[in-house]
Simulated scan of single mutants.
Amino acid sequence: MRVLLLSAYDAESHKRWRRGLVAAFPGWEWTVLTLPARYFSWRVRGNSLSWAMGPERATLEQSYDLVIATSMTDLSALRGLVPALAALPTLVYFHENQFAYPKTGLAHQSVEPQILNLYTALCGDRVVFNSEFNRRTFLEGAATLLNKLPDCVPPQVMEHVATRSLVMPVPLEQELFNFAYGSGGKPDYFTISWAARWEYDKGADRLLSILESLETAGVDYRLNLLGQSFRKVPSELIEIQDRFAHRLLQVGFVESLEEYRKILAVSDVFLSTAYHEFQGLAVMEATALGAIPLVPHTMAYPEIYPASCLYESAAGAVQRMLALQSIKQRGGTLEPVPMAHYGWDNWREPYENAIRAACGL
Rank of each mutant, 00 (worst) to 15 (best):
L225F: 10
V219H: 01
F278A: 02
P336L: 03
Y305D: 06
A314D: 03
Y305A: 06
S235H: 13
M321L: 12
F244C: 04
Y305L: 09
L225N: 09
V318L: 00
R261G: 07
S213V: 01
V254I: 12
M321Y: 12
E303M: 07
L324C: 13
A317I: 04
Q329C: 05
M299E: 11
F270E: 12
G331E: 11
V318I: 14
I240K: 03
E312Q: 12
H276Y: 13
A323G: 11
Y221H: 08
E255S: 14
R231W: 04
E239A: 12
L257H: 13
I263P: 09
L249N: 14
L310P: 05
E277A: 00
A245F: 08
T273P: 04
P336K: 11
Y260A: 04
S272C: 10
D220R: 14
I304N: 00
L334A: 08
S213I: 12
A288M: 06
R247C: 10
M284P: 05
S326E: 15
F244K: 03
R222Q: 10
V266Q: 03
C309N: 08
A323M: 02
D268G: 07
S272F: 10
V318G: 06
A323H: 03
Y301C: 01
V283N: 07
A314C: 13
T333P: 02
L248Q: 14
P296G: 05
M299W: 10
Y260T: 06
S235M: 07
G316L: 07
E259Q: 15
T216N: 01
H246Y: 14
Y311D: 00
V266S: 03
L223S: 05
S313D: 04
L226D: 02
D220G: 14
E259I: 13
A288R: 02
H246E: 10
S229L: 01
S213Q: 15
D220V: 15
F278E: 05
L249A: 12
Q241T: 06
Q250R: 12
M299C: 03
D268H: 14
E239V: 02
E285P: 01
P306E: 12
I304F: 04
A282R: 01
V283M: 01
G331M: 10
A291E: 00
A307K: 11
Q279F: 11
A315S: 07
C309S: 11
S313V: 09
I292Y: 15
F278M: 08
E255Y: 14
H297G: 13
A307F: 05
L237S: 06
E259V: 12
R320S: 03
V295G: 03
R231S: 14
M284I: 08
E277S: 09
V269W: 06
I292Q: 07
Y311F: 11
A323V: 05
L214V: 04
H276E: 15
Q279I: 04
S209C: 09
E335Y: 06
F244D: 03
A317P: 05
Q319V: 06
L271Y: 08
V337H: 04
F278I: 00
S272Y: 02
S229D: 03
R330V: 12
V219M: 10
R247V: 02
Q325F: 01
R261S: 00
